[in-house]
Design a protein around this nucleic acid. Sequence first.
DNA 1: GTCCAGGTTTTTA
DNA 2: TAAAAACATGGA
Length: 258
Amino acid sequence: METVDLQQTLSCGQCFRWQPQADGSWWGVAGGRALRLRQEQAAGLAQDPFWRRYFDLDGDYPALRARLAALHPVLRQAIAQAPGLHLLRQDPWEALCSFLLSQNNNIPRIQGCVQRLCQAFGAPLGEGLYAFPAAQTLAQLEEADLAPLRCGYRARYLLDAARQVSSGGLDLHALRTAPVEQARAALRGVCGVGPKVADCVLLYGLHRLEAFPLDVWMKRVMAALFPKLRPADFGPAAGLAQQYLFVWARRHPAQLAL
DNA sequence: GTCCAGGTTTTTA
DNA sequence: TAAAAACATGGA
């Protein structure tokens, strides 16, 4: 089993709750558990069932990379620059909230909004770390209660999502196995969820690797490098290709100018 | 002051 | 139906 690369995996834009520390370690929370570790300890993650699944250590990344690298030279180069990247299996409710907050927003501010959300309404886990608040918790709040998050008009999107999830009207876990178009449509039923956010929840929260979030960066990539391809042309792991290309795009913005 | 940020909703022609 | 404007917030 290959070792996951923490830097490549935790700072590639798929999650917002992991922070690099001055001593080189990473601090984060998932599934109500706090974790602090350095890259040298990453191999040990396989010993813990929860973190083994979260970091997708059973995914066959060598095979996935080989198949994608064969598709296009730039994709091969993008993979070579992040060969230890894994797609995390995040909680779908957390992913839904995180990417609702991401729209028309920048990454540092998204991180801040998520952090304040957890600090205000999540269970304290010690050393300044907090669990992600449950849908049932947020569902009882009013828009004014979310003012401290400074997330602007997106606050009401969080509340709509919380009410649909806590009432059972939207069963996120059922979407793991539903036909992907059906799952996408169900997610679109939440106010503030458009095509891009829906695909982020599918990919990052439900591990539906065929989902291919088309944000402004990926639209530039597709226009500049793959004008004749559609997301589905990248195959069943298109979402992983998307992640390599997203990282590459942000590292090489000049090569996307049209 | 203006522009922009891993978009989406609302309004307008 | 399609294009444009509005949407909160804060840093550059």
